[in-house]
Nucleic acid binder design. Structure first.
Lengths: 143, 143
DNA sequence: TGAAAAGTTTAGCCATTGCTAAACTTAACT
DNA sequence: AGTTAAGTTTAGCAATGGCTAAACTTTTCA
């Protein structure tokens, strides 16, 4: 049943990188969404974030505190959410990666819906080298 | 600085799927590694798993309990780790996905090292549709 | 065989990311 | 202005996946 014996592909470094990524992934998802809300509506409010993420209000509040600590977000009590310069930079970078991956999948012939979903999962795990190759494949620079 | 206003790409369903994936990802990484160890050395022992994953022994023990509960692994105290049929199936499927993704990246022209790392991060987030497209692109069936 | 080494398990701790329910602020509407 | 509705925050709980240290088995080898 098993294929021919193979070397274990998983090495501690790769595994740990993947684990560590998860926390920054989350931060990036929040920050990107906040950026989108600001661009869309002119402001980002806790409730909107909660609804878009499918998460409770209280969870957003807690997460925002972490993001403030990390210097990505600023906020005064009961006021709307703002991004720091660093926050914007992170959001822009996330959008860039996302767009490259999604476009690449579409170019590969993936359906729009699947491309959207897969790129969401994938965008945080692609190296710059791979992003470059994807852009090359699409035959255009997206950024 | 921001690109033109855009619709928020992130929808609650996609976000939640990504979150939910993380727990099965972990399970799959453990199970795949156990399968590799069995194929390589004829048996899988806790310490090897811990070393390969860069994680403490106790963490492996705890995780194995979860995997037993999920019906992927069987184990008697102080004995080595075995996979159930379901465990093997999961491992095989993980290997399949991994191989497709890694091969695809190599075909794209990515360096071996980067392909290995990126495919590790990506493999859990690609739909069957995308896997099929990747296989098509490589011009061969890998499984 | 019996002591030391190697490996495994248990116990108890911590951080993260969720949740609900209750308290508090701000905004909105008579 | 005062009441209600909407939005935000706090408090306290739960599950996950880590950790160390100490206890316990098994294996190895003098």
């Amino acid at each position: 049943m098993a294929t021919a014996p193979r070397k274990a592909k998983l090495q501690s470094a790769a595994f740990q990188r993947t684990r560590a990524d998860h926390s920054s992934e989350l931060a990036e998802d929040y920050v990107e969404l906040i950026a989108d809300l600001i661009d869309e509506k002119g402001e980002a409010r806790g409730t909107d974030v909660a609804v878009r993420l499918g998460v409770a209000n209280a969870t957003v509040v807690k997460m925002l505190k972490k993001l403030v600590e990390r210097g990505l977000v600023t906020q005064e009590p009961y006021r709307d959410i703002m991004l720091t310069g660093e926050g914007w930079a992170l959001a822009e970078n996330g959008r860039r990666r996302h767009d490259i991956v999604e476009n690449f999948l579409l170019t590969l012939g993936i359906s729009a819906e699947t491309a959207r979903i897969d790129s969401e999962g994938i965008e945080h795990h692609v190296s710059e080298e791979t992003l470059k190759a994807m852009q090359r494949y699409c035959g255009r620079k997206l950024t």
